[in-house]
Write a protein that binds this DNA or RNA. Structure first.
Length: 335
DNA sequence: AACGCGACCTGCGAGC
DNA sequence: TGCTCGCAGGTCGCGT
């Protein structure tokens, strides 16, 4: 929903100019702000791809544009090997993408498509001026209150499994190098439950810890984890090596439901395109059953006429919210 | 391999 | 009223 919306606005358009309003948001681009701009200006956005909380835009050269420069040699070489043999991108005027503009939205980041007359947002960090297109605003803005997120340019490398790198309309078996260590998220069509379950069972850890490990499954943060566990009626400390297949399916299905509900609420709330990986505050306000509900009745138990109060515990320097009745703590690390 | 923890950053609410 | 303080979140990197 989020990514699809963005792609329809920006894919195929040239980045004509880049304003870095706050260089702190370019922190992870090691070659600096000037190199960041140099890589983007003149490039064409080929697509918008998402994996977990990373969202990137593969870039191709405009036919008359200067080649991108300043990309580290190792990533350039890696992407070079990927080019041969990969299928040609249908809408790609300049060959296979070698680099991508990466955005991580962190906690509070947003990508906004805005017209030139829209006033700057208070926390505007980066402004991309796009080539004009009829009926569409001309700016893509990165807005971030807390600077947990950021933008940078990274190389494109082949995916390990040969499947598309992430969720996209025009998938290529390439992935932005900085996201290559991130597992597919449960909404990705190429997500493999079998692979996930196999790796989960081999872990000797607790279920929530595993859900938060982005190298095992991505897109699930503290809030989604608590909500998914509540829906699946599983405790956060449940040992992963005792988890039955049906239980793992249940918690993943629950995570999908939570993610979809949050994305649906977040992707449609503004006229201008509004992207916020955290999901809509509206969704959080209305639909949370466990997270942040300490001291309130468990909705499921209440519906069954049972009195039970959501409990909050310290966990991983964060918090874990559970219903003591319908998410009982496992005994002996087992059930 | 698993895991804990500090750092990063800023708005907000609690407490004084 | 105005101040300080602690907390919240995702990710990374380091130490164990």
């Amino acid at each position: 929903m989020v990514r699809r919306g963005l792609a329809s606005w920006v894919a195929g358009r040239t980045i004509e100019a880049v304003d870095v309003v706050d260089p702190r948001s370019i922190r992870r681009h090691l070659l600096g702000v000037e190199d960041f701009r140099g890589n983007l200006e003149g490039a064409v956005v080929a697509d918008v791809v998402r994996r977990g909380k990373f969202l990137w835009m593969p870039l191709v050269d405009a036919e008359a544009a200067q080649p991108a420069s300043g990309v580290p040699d190792d990533t350039a070489a890696a992407s070079g090997t990927a080019v041969s043999g990969a299928p040609q991108h249908a809408d790609d005027p300049g060959g296979q993408p070698k680099v991508a503009l990466m955005a991580h939205l962190g906690m509070s980041g947003q990508l906004l498509v805005q017209g030139n007359d829209a006033p700057d947002e208070k926390h505007l960090k980066v402004r991309l001026r796009l080539s004009p297109r009829d009926g569409m605003p001309d700016q893509l803005r990165f807005v971030d209150q807390r600077i947990f997120g950021g933008m940078f340019v990274t190389g494109m490398i082949p995916t390990v499994d040969g499947a598309p790198g992430g969720m996209s309309a025009n998938p290529l078996p390439l992935i932005a190098a900085e996201a290559a260590h991130i597992a597919r998220d449960p909404l990705d069509p190429a997500f493999s439950f079998d692979l996930f379950f196999q790796r989960l069972r081999r872990r000797k850890t607790g279920l929530k810890r595993a859900l938060l490990d982005q190298t095992l499954v991505s897109g699930i943060g503290n809030i989604y984890a608590d909500e998914a566990l509540w829906r699946a009626q599983l405790h956060y400390a449940r040992a992963t090596d005792t988890l039955r297949r049906a239980e793992a399916e249940r918690v993943l299905d629950s995570a999908r439901e939570v993610m979809e509900a949050a994305l649906a609420a977040g992707g449609t709330s503004f006229d201008a395109l509004y992207v916020n990986v955290n999901g809509a505050s509206g969704y959080f306000d209305r639909s949370l059953n466990a997270y942040g509900q300490e001291g309130k009745p468990c909705p499921r138990c209440a519906a069954a006429g049972i009195h039970s109060i959501i409990r909050r515990e310290q966990f991983m320097n964060r918090s874990a919210h559970t219903c003591p009745v319908c998410q009982p703590r496992p005994r002996n690390g087992r059930w």
